[in-house]
Amino acid sequence: MILDHVSKWFSKRTTHSFKEAFINWAKRKSVRTQQFQALNDVSFTIHEGESVAVMGLNGSGKSTTLKMVSGVLLPDEGKVRTRGRVAGLIEVGAGFHPDLTGRENVFLNAAILGMSEKETKERFDQIVEFSEIGDFIDQAVKHYSSGMFMRLAFSVAIHVELDVLLVDEVLGVGDAPFRAKCNAKLREMSENGVTMMIVSHSAGQVRELCSRGIVIRKGKVVFDGHIDDALDVLNGK
């Protein structure tokens, strides 16, 4: 996986309310926008089988980085290169339709991640068992808690035959025993050669799962090295 001089801008509108926007529209007055640079010339390479933590304060650009790798966002400058099948747990409930049942969403989400219907049917029981959703699998997911969303989304993603797994804070949702179960599964996947990028504010989790840390500050990479040193930089030591 390679990020080669990647930059990304977003438009930030100065209008803050519907009323103000309507008045501007009625007066044929254009709404001014400002450009906010979320990523600024970001470059790094992650080799096959590496587990890397991407860290930074809120708004630093770490989630934008993962969305670039997943293909959810495209860079305005630079290039992103990945090899193999990429699965992302970037937002709780992403790829789920609220009016469909958990069962239906398993097939929908698995298809989005590139699994065939045959593959999904073969792994369906394993997905449900790992998620611990039980009888809720046939209820509409709009009635699920955020923890239930995370359990099912994580379970689908880890049962895909993938080469790269992206995880963005979603494992902060749910109870401690299930988080421990997820971490154990991630360690197993890493040992089996899956490349992982993990965004987490948990020092314990990234120390457990990652040997390398990339620290991003205001859209720029300020450190890339051993996970202990990266945590020191993150904490201002």
Rank of each mutant, 00 (worst) to 15 (best):
I227D: 05
K185M: 15
M55I: 12
H97C: 05
N105I: 07
G71M: 05
V86E: 02
H5A: 11
L162P: 00
I137F: 00
F136E: 11
E132C: 10
S7W: 02
G134W: 10
V141M: 10
S155R: 08
W9L: 09
G213W: 07
S60I: 01
I137G: 00
F149S: 01
F10S: 04
A87K: 01
G213L: 11
M150G: 00
F136W: 12
K118F: 05
V141N: 06
Q37A: 11
C210T: 14
M55C: 13
V128E: 04
S131N: 10
T65Y: 06
L162D: 02
R151K: 06
F36I: 12
R103G: 02
L57C: 07
V72G: 09
T64P: 05
L113T: 09
T120G: 00
K79Y: 07
K62S: 03
H97F: 06
Q205M: 15
E117T: 02
M115L: 12
E122C: 02
K8H: 03
I227S: 07
I90A: 00
A203N: 14
G219H: 09
N235K: 13
P75F: 01
L231T: 10
G172L: 05
A94M: 10
S155C: 08
S155W: 04
T195W: 02
S60N: 09
S60K: 05
G213K: 09
A203L: 13
D99F: 15
M55D: 04
T14R: 14
V69W: 00
D99T: 13
E48P: 11
F124K: 11
V173R: 05
A94P: 02
F44K: 12
Q205W: 03
L57G: 10
E161I: 03
A140C: 10
G236H: 11
R32Y: 09
L57I: 13
K237Y: 12
S11N: 15
V42F: 01
A230N: 07
D76L: 03
E91N: 07
S211P: 03
A176G: 05
D135P: 00
G174C: 04
I23T: 15
V128Q: 00
M197N: 04
G204F: 07
V80H: 06
S211F: 03
V86M: 08
G95N: 09
R13E: 14
A203G: 15
D168W: 02
L209Q: 08
S51P: 01
N105L: 04
G71V: 03
K27F: 12
L74V: 09
M1A: 06
D99I: 11
L73G: 06
K218T: 08
A110Y: 07
A38E: 10
S7G: 12
L100Y: 13
M197R: 10
T33P: 01
K79G: 04
E208A: 10
T33R: 10
W25N: 10
I214M: 14
